[in-house]
């Protein structure tokens, strides 16, 4: 059974275990860091491909500050911008990627992460009639707010707060677009 404890062997065994474990972890990290990066890039590219028309090459990740908040976005030459926009939804953060063409027309949106109620707010990910209304939306002509608030967005039944958050996220992304055009 277990060896008798004294200060020397206690310190020795703890140091030894920590050394061996960090060595193992270092090796595993070295091996997996490449695939982890690839997986992240593949995920982002898949999202960008969904929100913008076909493009070639690797979009570059950039950051911009609008009204004191930082936004991450991807500049896709020839296609437009893919802006990541996060707002507070019903159950927690609701994170979208919004594709906006060079002309300022919204191309498509995709939910990156959410914590909305299953079967209610979570429908913002699946309900086609809700998601598809934003395809080809011109924020300059139509207001990004639910009809209840005097806008033009048809909310998901019984999920006004989620729909409101979704609209706000797109509106924020559009402001990012305006800022970027102004800078160019």
């Amino acid at each position: 059974m277990a060896a008798k404890s004294n200060l020397k062997n206690m310190a020795l065994s703890l140091t030894l275990v920590c050394l061996v474990c960090s060595a193992v972890l270092g090796c595993v990290y070295a091996v997996t860091s490449g695939p982890i990066k690839d997986a992240e890039i593949a995920k982002t590219n898949a999202s960008i491909a969904r929100v913008l028309p076909a493009f070639e090459g690797q979009p570059s990740a950039e950051t911009v500050e609008v009204d004191g908040n930082m936004f991450n976005y991807y500049r896709v030459p020839g296609a437009g911008y893919a802006v990541i926009s996060t707002v507070g939804g019903f159950g927690g953060p609701l994170s979208l990627m919004v594709g906006i063409g060079e002309d300022g027309i919204i191309c498509n949106t995709v939910v990156l992460s959410h914590s909305e109620t299953p079967g209610l707010g979570a429908k913002c990910q699946t309900e086609a009639s809700f998601i598809d209304q934003f395809k080809g939306w011109d924020p300059a002509a139509k207001r990004l707010a639910v009809t209840k608030d005097g806008g033009d967005v048809d909310a998901i039944t019984a999920s006004t707060i989620t729909s409101r958050a979704y609209s706000a996220a797109i509106a924020n992304a559009y402001n990012v677009y305006l800022k970027l055009r102004e800078n160019e």
């Binding site: 059974m1 008798k4 404890s5 206690m10 703890l14 193992v24």
Partner: peptide
């Protein structure tokens, strides 16, 4: 287990477990 001193066996086990969990995470 046979070579780990009795008094520090819990921390040692936790380090071992945490290592495998991190390997799994990666």
């Amino acid at each position: 287990a046979p070579v780990v001193p009795d008094k520090v066996h819990i921390p040692v086990y936790i380090v071992v477990i945490a290592t495998f969990v991190t390997v799994l995470q990666l």
